[in-house]
Amino acid sequence: DRMTSQEAACFPDIISGPQQTQKVFLFIRNRTLQLWLDNPKIQLTFEATLQQLEAPYNSDTVLVHRVHSYLERHGLINF
């Protein structure tokens, strides 16, 4: 699994950072998509996403918020 070119453009700090940071991003992105796909008729809020993310992935709330906002803005969740 890899970041898309659009994700890389929107998250230059992640793509240029350590490999582990990219893996954390990918986990948060994929898990958020999975959470929404589990029940697409219900809006997936940032707060609900954060509550359902497993530790330690829920510890970087800023990154979780950025990923959630990106997915929502680009019509990948909550459409």
Rank of each mutant, 00 (worst) to 15 (best):
D1R: 03
R2F: 06
R2A: 05
R2T: 09
R2H: 11
R2D: 05
M3P: 04
M3E: 03
M3H: 02
T4N: 12
S5Y: 10
S5H: 14
Q6I: 06
Q6Y: 06
Q6L: 10
Q6C: 11
Q6E: 12
Q6R: 11
E7R: 00
E7S: 02
E7W: 00
A8T: 09
A8N: 09
A8Y: 06
A8Q: 14
A8S: 13
A8K: 13
A9N: 14
A9C: 05
A9M: 13
C10E: 15
C10Q: 14
C10M: 06
F11M: 03
F11Y: 02
P12G: 07
P12F: 05
P12R: 06
P12N: 09
D13M: 01
D13Y: 02
D13P: 01
D13H: 06
D13T: 03
I14T: 02
I14W: 00
I14M: 05
I14Y: 02
I14C: 04
I15A: 11
I15S: 12
I15R: 11
I15P: 03
I15K: 08
S16R: 10
S16C: 10
S16T: 11
S16Q: 09
S16Y: 09
S16E: 11
S16M: 09
S16V: 07
G17V: 03
G17W: 03
G17H: 05
P18C: 13
Q19V: 13
Q19T: 11
Q19W: 12
Q20L: 11
Q20K: 14
T21S: 14
T21Y: 11
Q22K: 10
Q22Y: 10
Q22F: 08
Q22T: 06
Q22C: 07
K23L: 11
K23W: 08
K23I: 08
K23R: 13
K23S: 14
K23V: 09
V24P: 05
V24K: 06
V24G: 08
F25I: 02
F25H: 01
F25W: 07
L26A: 10
L26T: 12
F27E: 13
F27M: 09
F27D: 06
I28A: 03
I28D: 00
I28F: 00
I28E: 02
I28P: 01
I28V: 12
I28Y: 03
R29V: 04
R29F: 02
N30Q: 08
N30R: 08
N30V: 03
N30G: 04
N30F: 03
R31Q: 11
R31V: 07
R31F: 11
T32Y: 01
T32E: 00
T32N: 03
L33A: 04
L33N: 03
L33V: 11
L33Q: 10
L33S: 05
Q34G: 13
Q34V: 04
Q34M: 06
Q34L: 06
Q34P: 02
L35M: 13
L35A: 09
L35S: 08
L35E: 04
W36F: 07
W36C: 05
W36H: 09
L37I: 08
L37Y: 12
L37R: 13
L37N: 15
D38N: 13
N39E: 07
N39G: 06
N39D: 09
N39M: 06
N39A: 09
P40S: 07
P40L: 04
P40F: 04
P40W: 03
K41T: 13
K41L: 09
K41Y: 11
K41C: 14
I42Y: 09
I42D: 15
Q43E: 14
Q43P: 15
L44R: 03
L44K: 00
L44Q: 02
L44I: 07
T45S: 11
T45N: 05
T45E: 07
T45R: 05
F46Y: 10
F46N: 04
F46I: 14
F46M: 08
E47D: 14
E47N: 07
E47K: 11
E47I: 08
E47Y: 08
A48E: 10
A48D: 07
T49R: 00
T49I: 06
T49P: 02
T49Q: 04
T49S: 06
T49Y: 01
T49D: 00
L50Y: 08
L50S: 04
L50V: 11
L50K: 05
L50T: 04
L50D: 01
L50E: 05
L50H: 06
L50M: 10
Q51I: 07
Q51V: 08
Q51R: 14
Q52N: 15
Q52T: 12
Q52W: 07
Q52G: 14
Q52I: 10
L53S: 01
L53I: 07
L53C: 05
L53A: 02
E54T: 09
E54V: 11
E54W: 09
E54Q: 15
E54F: 06
A55Y: 09
A55Q: 06
P56K: 07
P56T: 05
P56W: 02
P56R: 04
P56M: 03
Y57T: 04
Y57E: 04
Y57F: 09
Y57D: 01
Y57Q: 02
N58S: 10
N58M: 05
S59C: 11
S59F: 15
S59R: 12
S59T: 12
S59H: 15
D60Q: 12
D60S: 07
T61N: 08
T61R: 15
T61S: 15
T61K: 10
V62E: 15
V62R: 13
V62C: 10
V62L: 12
V62M: 09
V62H: 13
L63H: 00
L63G: 01
L63V: 03
L63P: 00
V64S: 02
V64N: 03
V64K: 04
H65Y: 11
H65G: 14
H65Q: 15
H65M: 09
R66W: 01
R66D: 06
R66Y: 01
R66K: 11
V67Y: 01
V67G: 01
V67L: 05
H68L: 04
H68S: 03
H68N: 03
H68R: 02
S69F: 07
S69G: 13
S69P: 01
S69Y: 08
S69H: 11
S69T: 12
Y70L: 01
Y70I: 01
Y70E: 03
Y70W: 05
Y70K: 02
L71D: 01
L71S: 02
L71K: 00
L71A: 03
L71H: 01
E72G: 06
E72W: 06
E72M: 07
E72L: 04
R73T: 13
R73I: 07
R73D: 14
R73Y: 07
R73G: 15
H74A: 13
H74G: 10
H74F: 14
G75I: 03
L76W: 09
L76G: 05
L76C: 08
I77F: 02
I77N: 02
I77D: 00
N78W: 00
F79W: 07
F79R: 15
